[in-house]
C-alpha cells in the first residue's frame, strides 16, 4: 500500500495506480466459496460449454470486488470507499490479465466529507473495458 492520498493533492483527470489481476480457476473457486455464487459456468468447463460459452468465465462480482480493492488500496488507510459499481459488459477468462483502472472525474465537499468521483473499469488483454463503472471515495483533507 502506498502512502496516504489526500483530497487536496488529487486533480480531475488524474489516473490512480493500476491493479493487475490474473485469475487462476482456483481463485474462482475461492471466490465462489467467499461470495456464495456457485453457478457452474465459473468453474465447470463442461457446464460452461453446454450453456454456449467457449470457456469458464470470471464472476462479474469478482471483477467488481477487484475494483473495490483498486479504490481501497488507493484511499487507505485514511480514506473510505463510499460507492462503487460497474456493469458487466464483457467476459473475462481465467489465466488472462484483468487490469483495474480509475480516472478522477470530479472533486467536491459535502458537509465534512471530501469526495472524489471516479470512472473505474477493468480492461482485458485487448484493451477492451469489460466492466465500466463509477465510484465515490472519501479522502482525508490536509
Amino acid at each position: 500500500m502506498a502512502d496516504q492520498t489526500y483530497w487536496d493533492d488529487v486533480n480531475e483527470g488524474d489516473s490512480i495506480p493500476e491493479l493487475r489481476k490474473n485469475c487462476s480457476t482456483q481463485q474462482l473457486v475461492h471466490w465462489a466459496a467467499a461470495s456464495g455464487d456457485f453457478y457452474q459456468i465459473h468453474y465447470d468447463l463442461g457446464f460452461a460449454k453446454n450453456t454456449g460459452l467457449d470457456n469458464i468465465i470470471v464472476h462479474g462480482a469478482l471483477k467488481n470486488a477487484f475494483l473495490g480493492q483498486l479504490l481501497h488500496d488507493w484511499a487507505a488507510p485514511g480514506g473510505v470507499v463510499r460507492e462503487f459499481g460497474c456493469e458487466y459488459r464483457g467476459m473475462d477468462y481465467p489465466d488472462q490479465d484483468i487490469t483495474c483502472k480509475g480516472v478522477v472525474t470530479a472533486k467536491s465537499v459535502e458537509g465534512d466529507d471530501h469526495i472524489i468521483e471516479l470512472d473505474i473499469w477493468t480492461e482485458n488483454p485487448d484493451g477492451q473495458k469489460t466492466t465500466p463503472g463509477t465510484a465515490r471515495v472519501v479522502l482525508p483533507a490536509r
Partner: peptide, 8 residues
C-alpha cells in the same frame, strides 16, 4: 449478472 453498485 448485468451489473452491481454498492453504496456504503
Amino acid at each position: 449478472n448485468g451489473g452491481t453498485t454498492y453504496e456504503y
